[in-house]
Simulated scan of single mutants.
Amino acid sequence: MARLPWHKIDTVLLDMDGTLLDLHFDTQFWVEHIPKKLAERTGKSLEDCHAHMQEAYAEVYGEIQWYCLDYWAEKLDLDIMSAKRELMHLIRMRDDSIPFLDALKKSERKVVLVTNAHPDSLSLKLEETELASHIDTLISTHQFGVTKESQSLWQQLQAHLDFDPAHTLFVDDSQRILDAAKEFGIAYTLGITNPDSQAPENDITGHPHTNNYHDIIQSIIDDNFQPHSQG
């Protein structure tokens, strides 16, 4: 079970997809639905479209284009948002997210969503979930032009939010992004090993990790919150 020194943490930065929301929607959309839509539009075989998309994803993996709906709409000549709405019934929060967010709110910590998701995708997910009512600030990295994989993002984000890295926790399901946060100087990180409810768990190394927020909620409640400015 992940153990975190909550009394030293006054800001919590949270990823969205796979961390607060079930990643199953995104997996189905990008891995299955988009190749299907491409096959319908082009008349090519589904197998060829799967292979084409794997190559296209690999070209921009981790870069802002990888997450950019405008980029994919232009590249594929597809209405991406319309295609997303066809699967929006799959958008759902993790079962343990609301209790976790409620515990953070009760502890009076500053809670910020920091997602690489495109603003339109973020809006769709806010429309379908309770995220907006449980988080203080919602940020898409597209407003900074770089992703959480980039040190430039962390520099801009720190300037924008004025958080103290030494008293900040960052939660994400990506090894690469957790590593980038740690490289920047975020003192506390937490990896989520089960982002997709329909897929096997991932390995997270070099970071405390969990597959169930319920395992750490009591420690948030028990650990008296004292902002670092007070000691």
Rank of each mutant, 00 (worst) to 15 (best):
M1C: 06
A2G: 03
A2L: 07
L4A: 00
H7V: 00
D10I: 01
V12R: 01
L13N: 03
L13T: 03
L13E: 02
D15S: 13
M16W: 13
D17M: 09
G18Y: 05
L20F: 11
H24K: 10
F25E: 01
T27L: 10
W30T: 08
E32N: 15
E32A: 14
P35A: 12
P35R: 15
K37W: 13
K37N: 09
A39I: 11
E40C: 05
T42R: 15
G43C: 09
K44H: 15
S45W: 13
E47V: 13
E47L: 14
D48M: 15
D48L: 15
H52Q: 14
M53N: 13
Q54E: 12
E55M: 13
A56G: 01
A56I: 01
E59K: 15
Y61I: 03
Y61D: 07
I64S: 09
I64D: 06
Y67N: 04
L69S: 08
D70N: 08
Y71F: 15
Y71W: 12
W72P: 00
A73E: 13
E74C: 03
K75R: 14
L76N: 06
D79I: 04
I80M: 15
M81F: 02
S82A: 12
A83Q: 10
R85Y: 02
E86L: 04
E86F: 04
L87I: 03
M88W: 09
H89K: 05
L90P: 00
I91W: 00
D95E: 09
L101M: 10
L101W: 10
K105M: 09
S107D: 14
S107Y: 05
S107C: 05
E108L: 10
K110C: 08
K110H: 13
V111S: 07
V111Q: 07
V111L: 11
L113M: 08
V114E: 01
T115S: 14
T115I: 01
D120A: 10
S121P: 01
S123I: 05
E128Q: 13
T129V: 02
E130W: 05
D136C: 06
S140K: 04
T141Q: 08
G145V: 08
G145H: 10
V146T: 14
T147E: 07
K148Y: 11
K148D: 09
E149I: 05
S150C: 09
S150T: 04
S152T: 14
S152A: 14
L153S: 04
L153F: 15
Q155G: 04
A159S: 08
H160C: 05
D164Q: 12
A166R: 13
A166N: 10
H167G: 02
H167W: 05
T168Q: 00
S174R: 13
S174C: 05
I177V: 14
I177H: 11
L178W: 05
A180S: 14
A181L: 04
K182S: 12
E183R: 14
F184S: 06
A187M: 05
A187E: 07
T189R: 02
G191N: 07
N194C: 07
N194G: 04
D196F: 11
E201A: 10
I204P: 03
T205G: 04
H209N: 09
T210E: 00
T210R: 00
N212A: 06
Y213V: 03
H214A: 12
I217Q: 08
I217W: 12
I220Y: 02
I221G: 02
D223R: 02
F225H: 15
Q226D: 13
P227S: 03
S229G: 08
